[in-house]
Amino acid sequence: STVKVRLGHLEVTLHNVSEEDVRELRELWKNGADEEDLRRWLEEWKK
């Protein structure tokens, strides 16, 4: 499914993403990950 995730002022649209992935991303964000960390996660996730 396609999910729009809003993290601060960063809005990311993920395609074919699982609930688990979204949860993981939100956890990262809650734990103080900055945009760099999130971008890195997204790069990994896209592979």
Results as ranks from 00 to 15, higher is better:
Glu19Tyr: 07
Gly8Trp: 01
Leu42Phe: 13
Lys4Tyr: 02
Thr2Trp: 04
Arg26Ala: 13
Asn31Val: 05
Val17Gly: 03
Ser1His: 15
Leu38Arg: 01
Lys4Arg: 13
Trp45Arg: 11
Trp45Leu: 10
Asn31Gln: 12
Leu25Tyr: 03
Val3Ser: 02
Asp37Tyr: 08
Lys47Val: 08
Trp45Asp: 02
Glu27Thr: 04
Thr13Met: 07
Leu10Ser: 09
Val3Gly: 01
Asp37Met: 14
Leu7Asp: 01
Val12Glu: 04
Lys4Met: 04
Trp29Gly: 11
Glu11Pro: 01
Val17Asp: 00
Val12Phe: 11
Gly32Ser: 05
Lys46Gln: 13
Leu7Gly: 01
Val22Trp: 11
Asp37Thr: 15
Leu25Cys: 01
Asp34Lys: 12
Arg26Gly: 10
Gly32Met: 07
Arg23Ser: 09
Trp45Ile: 09
Trp41Tyr: 02
Asp34Cys: 03
Glu27Cys: 08
Gly32Asp: 08
Trp41Ser: 01
Leu42Lys: 00
Asp34His: 12
Asp37Leu: 12
His15Arg: 07
Glu44Asn: 15
Lys47Glu: 08
Glu20Met: 09
Glu36His: 14
His15Trp: 04
Leu42Gly: 00
Glu24Gly: 08
Val3Pro: 01
Asn31His: 09
Glu24Ala: 14
Glu43Thr: 05
Glu27Arg: 06
Trp29Pro: 02
Asn31Met: 06
Glu36Gln: 13
Asn31Thr: 10
Glu35Met: 09
Asp34Arg: 10
Leu42Ser: 01
Val17His: 01
Thr13Arg: 04
Ser18Ala: 11
Val22Lys: 07
Ser1Met: 15
Leu25Val: 02
Leu38Ser: 00
His15Ser: 07
Glu24Thr: 14
Ser18Thr: 12
Arg26His: 15
Glu43Pro: 01
Lys46Trp: 15
Glu36Asp: 14
Asp37Ser: 12
Val5Met: 08
Leu42Tyr: 14
Ala33Lys: 03
Asp21Asn: 08
Leu10Phe: 14
Leu25Trp: 03
Glu27Asn: 07
Asn16Glu: 05
Glu11Phe: 05
Asp21His: 13
Glu20Leu: 08
Lys46Gly: 12
Lys46Ser: 14
Leu10Asn: 09
Leu7Trp: 07
His9Tyr: 11
Ser1Pro: 07
Leu14Pro: 00
Lys30Phe: 13
Leu7Ile: 15
Arg39Ala: 10
Trp29Glu: 15
Arg39Asp: 03
Glu20Arg: 12
Asn31Trp: 03
Asn31Asp: 13
Gly8Val: 03
Leu42His: 02
Glu36Ser: 12
Arg6Lys: 13
Glu19Ala: 13
Val5Gly: 01
Leu14His: 01
Leu10Thr: 13
Asn31Ile: 05
Gly32Lys: 04
Arg40Glu: 08
Glu20Thr: 10
Val3Ile: 14
Leu7Asn: 02
Thr13Trp: 09
Leu14Asp: 00
Val3Thr: 04
Glu35Thr: 08
Lys4Val: 13
Ser1Asp: 06
Glu27Met: 04
Asp21Lys: 14
Asp21Phe: 14
Leu10Pro: 00
Trp29Gln: 15
Asn31Glu: 13
Glu24Asn: 12
Arg39Val: 12
Glu35Gln: 09
Trp29Ala: 15
Trp41Asn: 00
Trp41His: 01
Leu7Thr: 03
Leu28Trp: 07
Thr2Asp: 06
Asn31Tyr: 05
Arg40His: 09
